[in-house]
Each structure stands twice: as structure tokens, then as C-alpha cells.
């Protein structure tokens, strides 16, 4: 609907209101009904504010979704650190610590865990009736979801930054420095978007909090372990290597790890069109973008379906 039409409708509505008004009081009231027109960015901003307020107010979620990755980071480096160093000394050249090797994987794990809460937020909204309430407002539905997703992106960036800082404090070394750290976060974001889409899609389908949480958690661990996240693929059984080839986590982790180590660590795709680490980062990012678009479209489709007719 184009803005001019909207305005015409709006004044028509106001005209109608004035006609209804019988008493003087009602007439002055009707006259004060001047509404600023809703814009896409305005609507998105309103929803961004709402979701940001919610997550700031409820830091518990933020902390809990960070807790598991942090536990992984500490346990893995302490328990497997000694053993794993042998296995990883291949790809990155001479001597890299397991901390350095693991941090990019944990960043991806954070993106994964944070994305799960996106769907939970949506289910909460459906259960609380806020979803329907928002649908009855004149806000653009796309803007509503854009605002919510933007709020989640900001949160995920904050969480990934925390992990990077913590990793460096534990002794990890980002070979590409600050620009590399920013790059890792960008890769993490590209990675999170498909999982955000997936968790929202599952939320719309199940419309149930427990189902969403269980499904997403069930996916989380097999996906993490059957990838290049914790150990180089060469040191893993063949069937895992095969699975990892089709596992999005491998692409996210390899792209992030390439930036961490400043080396082409991607083994599942043999790209030599670029130089050095870009042979891993560019193909990895490309795969993630394709996934984002595919799952994003599915999620948008399901959300539009759910909102255009909420017939259960």
C-alpha cells in the first residue's frame, strides 16, 4: 500500500469519527485523533526497542545462553588441551594452542545458542497474546520481524564479543588482530541468521515453548560435535567427515578459524581462487549466505502464513 493511499484512508477514518461524534466533548476528542503515519523504519525501531528492553531487563537469558559455551571453552581447553594440541598442529602451521583453535568454534556455539532464544521469544509472544495484538496494529509485519531480529543481532554481537575477550584472556591469539576479530563476529552473525530463521520457523510450527526448546537443543549438540568445531576433521572417523561436509557449522567454524589463525583451514571445500585465509573465509561465508536466504525465506513465509490467517 503506497503512503498517499494510506493518508487518504486515514483522513477518511477521521472524517468518519467526526461524523459519529454527538456531544461537544466527543467532537473535540475526535478532532484530536491525528495520527502520525507508520513508516517501515519507525515500526522496525519500535519493535527493536521493545525486544531490546526485554533482553536488557532479563539478563538471565543472556547469561544462561553464555554459560554453556563458556563451560565448554574452559572444560575443553583444560581436559583435552594437552591431547588435542597434537592433533591440531597440522593445519595452522607450527604451534597453536588449543585455546586459539577452540575460540572460533565457541563463538559459533554462542551464535547457535543465542539464535535458539529467538524462537523462544516468538513462542512466548504467541502464548502471551502479544503476537496477535501486534498483528491487529497497523504496523508493517515485515518491519515487526525486522525489528525483533535486529534486537537479537545486537545481543548476539555482544555475546560473541564477550567470548572473544574471554578467549584472549585465557591465552587465545587472534593472528589477524582487531580487524580479524570483527571479521569473526561478522561470520558468526552470518551463521546465526539461518539458525534464527530455523528457530522461528520451528516456533511458528509448534507454537509451543517446550517443543521449540527441545527441538533446538536436540539439534545443537550433534551439529556441534559432527563438525570441525572441536578437532580437525582428519582426526575424526570417516562418517563424521562425510556428515561434517554437509553441516553448516563446519563452514561457519572454518571461516571464523581462518580469520583466527590467518590461514586457509577449510578442508571440506578446496578453493584456491583467492589468497591465504580468504580461500576459507569467502567460500564459508558464501555457503552461510545461501543458507540464510533459504531458511530466511522459509521463516518469512511461515510467519506470513501464521499472521495472515491465525486459524489454528
Amino acid at each position: 500500500m503506497s503512503p498517499p493511499t494510506d493518508d487518504a484512508e486515514r483522513s477518511a477514518t477521521d472524517g468518519g469519527t467526526a461524523e459519529t461524534a454527538t456531544g461537544t466533548e466527543a467532537e473535540t476528542e475526535a478532532a484530536t485523533v491525528r495520527r502520525s503515519s507508520n513508516t517501515f523504519l519507525g515500526d522496525a525501531w519500535v519493535n527493536f526497542k521493545r525486544w531490546t528492553t526485554k533482553s536488557v531487563r532479563n539478563p538471565f537469558v543472556l547469561v544462561v545462553s553464555l554459560a554453556q559455551p563458556i563451560i565448554f571453552l574452559i572444560l575443553f581447553t583444560q581436559v583435552f588441551g594437552q591431547v588435542a594440541t597434537g592433533a591440531i598442529s597440522g593445519p595452522g602451521g607450527a604451534s597453536i594452542s588449543y585455546e586459539t583453535y577452540l575460540v572460533p568454534a565457541i563463538v559459533i556455539q554462542v551464535a547457535l545458542a543465542a539464535a535458539i532464544t529467538s524462537g523462544i521469544g516468538l513462542v512466548n509472544d504467541i502464548e502471551e497474546g502479544m503476537f496477535e495484538k501486534v498483528l491487529v496494529t497497523p504496523m508493517s509485519r515485515t518491519a515487526v520481524f525486522a525489528g525483533k531480529t535486529a534486537a537479537e543481532v545486537v545481543r548476539i554481537i555482544a555475546q560473541m564479543s564477550i567470548i572473544l575477550v574471554l578467549g584472549v584472556l585465557l591465552g587465545a591469539d587472534i593472528a589477524t588482530g582487531l580487524p580479524g576479530a570483527v571479521g569473526i563476529i561478522v561470520v558468526g552473525l552470518l551463521f546465526s541468521l539461518w539458525f534464527v530463521s530455523l528457530s522461528n520457523a520451528i516456533a511458528v510450527i509448534t507454537k509451543d515453548q517446550e517443543s521449540t526448546i527441545i527441538t533446538m537443543n536436540l539439534l545443537q549438540f550433534p551439529l556441534l560435535f559432527l563438525s570441525s568445531a572441536f578437532l580437525p576433521l582428519e582426526s575424526l572417523p570417516n562418517w563424521i567427515q562425510t556428515f561434517a561436509r554437509y553441516n553448516p557449522i563446519t563452514y561457519g567454524v572454518d571461516a571464523a578459524r581462518a580469520l583466527m589463525l590467518d590461514a586457509d583451514v577449510m578442508t571440506v571445500l578446496d578453493v584456491n581462487a583467492f589468497t591465504g585465509l580468504w580461500n576459507a573465509v569467502i567460500p564459508g561465508a558464501a555457503v552461510l549466505v545461501v543458507l540464510d536466504i533459504a531458511l530466511g525465506s522459509i521463516a518469512v513465509y511461515l510467519l506470513t502464513q501464521a499472521s495472515s490467517s491465525s486459524a489454528q
Binding site: S36, N58, E132
Partner: peptide
Amino acid sequence: AQETSVDEELTATENIRFACEAYGVPK
């Protein structure tokens, strides 16, 4: 709606403000 629908994590003021913004009540 039949089921009470308010955002429980927001205050009363914030809930109403959100509705104002959603319906384009001028700033």
C-alpha cells in the same frame, strides 16, 4: 482479545507506550 495480552516483562507505561507507537500516536 479474550486472553489477556500484555508484555509481562514491560511496565504498564512501557506497554501503553508500545501500543501508542504501534498505532502511530504522535510523539
